[in-house]
Design a protein around this nucleic acid. Structure first.
Lengths: 228, 228
DNA sequence: TTAATTCTATTTGTATTACAATTAGATTAA
DNA sequence: TTAATCTAATTGTAATACAAATAGAATTAA
């Protein structure tokens, strides 16, 4: 019924399913700032009427948006736009290549080399202190239980760049890497600490090239250990 | 009906919608190599019976997988697993931050700095020749119509690393960047060519650090132009 | 008054059924 | 052989009904 009116406008151009069109309309609400991250969407029934589609179509669109991490549905409560860019799709992608460890390690290294370069430009005193804390905690750790602080060191660098796009990508990669690391038997705590300190110094001096170089040395070492 | 049997096994653990569980089952087909990229999935009706769920649930799962670029549905034909990691979710993510040009430019730079480093390690004669071709074509281009060859230069580097994860991320970013570039008024062809040649030389010599440095100079220049 | 409990109505989650639209592949005609 | 047509399989859309979960209101107990 309402479909006819819509057809008049767009039927020549589009070659998409209704669900996909609905999906785009919802995304447009965000892009056009009519709704903001965290906002609650109207209930499905209302949106159906508003856009003139059936419930299955509306639900397919919502499911799709949810799998992209753009909205979050809660039974009986409602549907909300998520607060920030989600790493959900990235994680799914990574699970598909989880047997390709080399690709994951390379991707992680690539991203971190870029990240640390920006981090050097944007470094603040607070971030430096947080980084130093992780190094101290690693030094104080017993056995080889320093993985947590190791991960934190890298996450702090990623966070310091304050870039939602990069953030979304690196989180999933670091988590994948933790799983990969878990399989390494002989860890070398002292060497890791030494590397982290070198990176820390370069960041402290705000020297992008030096930071890159230090991170390069570190990650190449990690790569060798992981890939044997 | 069949749901009961399933509940006995998993109801204590899971807290997911049926559609999400179905989604995972389908992904598992890929991970466990029961089906491969490009393969055709059984029709919806068959999968419904197989997994004991209704058609809407099955369709929601499929919609979700399609929006992640994992499957591709064709009316009347069937549903196929996609051949390679899709950049679809990345593109969607980017559209959400399309107003945050700085984030996109930074992400692109970060990734390319890492990519070019690996590219230097993996460089082949064929890739070098392809890169050189784009430089020649840029030199021969009239006016400022060299954007296409500029893009190609960067894509060839990305492709040369031969990493599906990085490939999926960089494509969307480069395309976004093309749109951003289109808004720049005064372009500097000679400078771009000079930069590309420097990168080319570093790659030819297979020197990761030098390649990084050359790309760094190039992208910082691009960033300044884009962000004014 | 306050806190704990129960209830209710709203919203998402799932199922069933029916039909429409598309088009690959088979069939037929030129 | 080629082109046009037809058919049947598969995805696309709709309408409807009920189930499940739970936020918030209403109630009760302390």
């Amino acid at each position: 019924m309402k479909k006819d009116a819509l057809d008049l406008i767009s039927s020549q151009v589009v070659r998409k399913t209704l669900a996909q069109q609905v999906e785009e309309q919802i995304i447009d609400l965000l892009i056009s700032n009519k709704l903001k991250p965290g906002d609650k969407l109207p209930p499905e029934m209302e949106l159906m009427e508003l856009l003139g589609v059936s419930r299955p179509v509306m639900r397919e669109a919502m499911t799709s948006l949810e799998s992209l991490g753009i909205v979050k549905r809660k039974t009986r409560d409602g549907t909300y736009f998520t607060e920030s860019i989600s790493n959900k799709p990235f994680s799914t992608m990574l699970s598909l290549v989880s047997d390709n460890i080399e690709a994951i390690v390379e991707a992680r290294t690539s991203l971190e080399l870029g990240l640390v370069t920006y981090a050097a430009e944007k470094m603040t005193a607070e971030t430096l202190e947080a980084l130093n804390d992780t190094i101290i905690q690693m030094e104080n750790s017993v056995d080889n239980e320093y993985g947590e602080h190791d991960l934190m060191f890298h996450r702090i660098i990623a966070l310091s760049v304050n870039n939602p796009v990069l953030q979304g990508m690196i989180d999933s990669l670091l988590l994948s890497h933790v799983k990969i690391n878990a399989q390494i038997k002989y860890r070398e705590k002292e060497k890791t600490i030494k590397h982290h300190k070198a990176i820390y110094e370069a960041l402290k001096e705000k020297k992008p090239q030096a930071a890159f170089q230090a991170m390069y040395n570190h990650l190449k070492f990690v790569e060798r250990k992981v890939l044997e």
